[in-house]
Simulated scan of single mutants.
Amino acid sequence: MDAVELPRTALDAFLSSSAFAEMLDPGDERTASRSAAARRAEVAEVVRAVDRLAGRRFIDRERAGEVVFGGITGGGLGVRPSVVDEVLALLRPVAVPAPGPPKPVPYEAQSALGVYVYALVDPRDASLFHVGAGRGDRVHRHSAAALAGVVPDPVDIVGDDDPVAIADAIEERIRDIDADGFGVEHWILRYDIGSANSAELHANSLRRAGLDVADLAGSGSSDAPDAHGPWRIEELVGRYAAPVSPPLPELCVLVKVDASARGDATADVIYELSRSAWRAGPHRTVPDLPVLVFADDLVRAVHRVDYWESYRDAEGNLDPKRWVYTGTPDPDLEARYVGTSLREVRRERGGKWNPSGWHPYGHVS
Rank of each mutant, 00 (worst) to 15 (best):
M1D: 05
D2N: 08
D2W: 04
V4R: 01
V4I: 06
L15G: 10
S18Q: 14
M23C: 05
P26G: 04
G27D: 13
G27A: 10
E29S: 02
S33C: 03
S33G: 00
S35I: 07
A36L: 12
E42H: 07
G55R: 03
R57L: 08
F58G: 02
E62Q: 14
A64V: 06
G74V: 07
G75C: 06
V83D: 06
V87Q: 11
V87D: 11
V94D: 02
A95M: 09
A98M: 08
V117N: 02
P123S: 05
D125R: 08
S127N: 01
F129I: 11
A133T: 08
G134T: 12
G134S: 09
R138I: 15
V139K: 01
H140P: 00
S143T: 15
S143K: 01
A148I: 12
A148C: 08
A148F: 11
A148T: 11
A148E: 13
A148Q: 10
D153N: 15
V155I: 07
D162L: 09
P163H: 06
V164A: 13
I166F: 01
A167W: 03
A167F: 05
A167N: 03
D168M: 11
E172M: 13
G183P: 06
H186N: 13
H186K: 10
I193P: 00
G194A: 12
A196P: 03
E200Y: 04
R208P: 00
R208Q: 08
A209K: 03
D212C: 02
D212S: 04
A214F: 10
L216F: 04
G218M: 04
G218W: 04
S219H: 04
S222M: 14
A227R: 02
W231D: 13
L236T: 11
G238N: 09
R239D: 05
Y240N: 10
C252M: 15
C252W: 05
C252E: 03
R262G: 12
G263S: 15
G263Q: 11
D264Q: 02
A267T: 04
D268P: 01
S274P: 05
A280H: 07
P282Y: 06
T285H: 10
V286H: 03
D288G: 02
F294V: 07
D296V: 13
D297E: 15
A301L: 13
V302F: 04
R312K: 13
D313K: 14
A314M: 13
G316I: 10
P320N: 02
R322Y: 11
E334I: 07
R336G: 01
V338A: 08
T340I: 10
S341A: 14
R347S: 12
E348S: 15
G351N: 04
K352A: 13
N354W: 07
S356I: 14
H359W: 13
P360N: 12
P360Y: 09
